[in-house]
C-alpha cells in the first residue's frame, strides 16, 4: 500500500498545518502547493513557518 500523502495547508491567520490529500480540506484552509509524506510535510512546515504569530497579532489587530 502506498504511503498516505499529506498536504501542507494554511489558514487566513497564516497558521500552518497538514491534511490528508484524499480528504476534503475544511473551509478557510488553503493548499500551499506542497505535498508529501507526513514527515516531509512537517519538515517543510519547519522551514517555511518562520513567524508563528497569527497574522492578526502581527498586524496589531488582536
Amino acid at each position: 500500500m502506498a504511503e498516505p500523502r499529506f498536504l501542507v495547508v494554511r489558514n487566513d491567520e497564516e497558521q500552518y498545518s497538514i491534511w490528508s490529500a484524499d480528504r476534503e480540506l475544511p473551509a478557510g484552509w488553503h493548499d500551499t502547493g506542497f505535498a508529501g509524506s507526513r514527515e516531509e510535510c512537517l519538515a517543510h512546515v519547519d522551514e517555511v513557518w518562520t513567524d508563528m504569530r497569527p497574522r492578526s497579532v502581527r498586524e496589531g489587530i488582536s
Binding site: 501542507v8 497558521q15 500552518y16 498545518s17 497538514i18 507526513r38 510535510c41 512537517l42 519538515a43 512546515v45 519547519d46 517555511v48 513557518w49 518562520t50 508563528m52
Partner: peptide, 8 residues
C-alpha cells in the same frame, strides 16, 4: 519555536 510539531 516548533512549527512542525505545532502543525502536527
Amino acid at each position: 519555536d516548533r512549527p512542525g510539531l505545532t502543525a502536527e
